[in-house]
Design a protein around this nucleic acid. Structure first.
Length: 326
DNA sequence: AATATTTGACCGAC
DNA sequence: GTCGGTCAAATATT
């Protein structure tokens, strides 16, 4: 168990899976240029991607493997900067965000991932309320936050009960600019592709329209980053992307998880949707989410899986099982 | 009727 | 004790 040979095999497997996934992403981005393609080929690509995500999640490898393996990142996607940040309180974190707009901040802890976006809504096209995304959320709470003008709203995925999707998000209006929403995502969506599989074409069409609207409404002013800060290309969120982060390139074994941002992939040069994204893993998220009485029965992907330490990877996992790559 | 939202209560962390 | 996050009953909406 845990021999170098096993390690090499799993590494090779990761490389192959990652390459396949990246190619599928490129195909998806290509198809995303037209709405109609989303309804046909796009759906197939999503399924292909889903398979790759599952496989990689089982390997606890859902993005950039930091353990010495090169992996291909398509030019149309952006992996957030591995910029570091020392631990700090959420308030000081927020202040730092404002001091350095557009800077992508990562923080690493152990298990689940948490990331924050600051989204400016176009008052004309965005309308009232927080910006929409391609997932359906159900509000489950609202809280006045100390020192904040506006309350924080808590949302969970609508499919939490039906599909065991454990994704949640928090939305809070910015103190300084009411048009800016700070949206914190936690947990991974496991519902989207499965639900899409059962959606009629008109829903896919609606989704596509929504994507266009989101593109319009979530535009934020785009300023150029200093080259020193712009470790990765300008950030755009793919639709079913998964990332894995670490606060240090040297901490190869500390893979912290995957995520599926619910936003649109864009390979164009249009304005970035987000001025800032702050990634943060939370150790406590893990038990929190797992304590949910709703068991996850539909998918092996979830917080449970991506929290597994790579060392715990079982080289005897039946990858050759006919049911594995579904 | 089914589903979503509101909102006070509750709980754990600090 | 406070605070942030979640629960769940009541209420609203579809």
């Amino acid at each position: 168990m845990g021999s170098e040979k096993d390690c090499d095999q799993s590494n090779n497997l990761m490389i192959e899976l990652t390459q396949g996934r990246e190619l599928a992403k490129q195909l998806r981005d290509h198809l995303n240029h037209t709405c109609s393609s989303l309804q046909s080929g796009g759906f197939l690509v999503e399924r292909i991607l889903s398979s790759y995500e599952k496989a990689l999640s089982m390997l606890n490898f859902t993005g950039v493997y930091l353990g010495g393996i090169q992996c291909t990142i398509s030019s149309s996607e952006s992996i957030p900067s591995l910029a570091n940040s020392s631990p700090r309180s959420e308030d000081s974190e927020r202040n730092s965000i404002r001091d350095q707009p557009h800077k992508i901040v990562l923080k690493k802890r152990k298990a689940a991932l948490r990331w924050t976006e600051q989204v400016r809504v176009d008052p004309e096209t965005g309308g009232e309320g927080p910006p929409d995304d391609c997932y359906s959320w159900r509000k489950y709470g609202q809280k006045d936050i100390l020192g904040a003008k506006f309350p924080r709203c808590y949302y969970r995925c609508t499919h939490r009960n039906s599909q065991g999707c454990l994704a949640i998000k928090q939305v809070q209006k910015s103190d300084e600019d009411p048009l800016v929403y700070e949206i914190t995502y936690r947990g991974r969506h496991t519902c989207m592709l499965a639900s899409n599989a059962m959606q009629p074409s008109e829903k896919r069409q609606k989704l596509c329209t929504l994507q266009q609207e989101v593109k319009q409404s979530l535009k934020v002013k785009s300023e150029e980053l200093d080259d020193k800060e712009q470790i990765f290309p300008p950030f755009t969120l793919p639709q079913t992307e998964s990332y894995i982060f670490s606060d240090s390139l040297t901490e190869s074994s500390d893979l912290i998880g995957s995520f599926s941002p619910p936003f649109i992939s864009s390979s164009t040069s249009e304005s970035n949707l987000f001025s800032l994204i702050d990634f943060q893993s939370l150790e406590s998220d893990h038990t929190e989410i797992l304590s949910n009485p709703t068991s996850v029965t539909n998918s092996p992907i979830g917080d449970v899986d991506f929290s597994l330490d790579p060392i715990e990877f079982d080289p005897n996992f039946p990858f050759d099982s006919p049911d594995f790559f579904v």
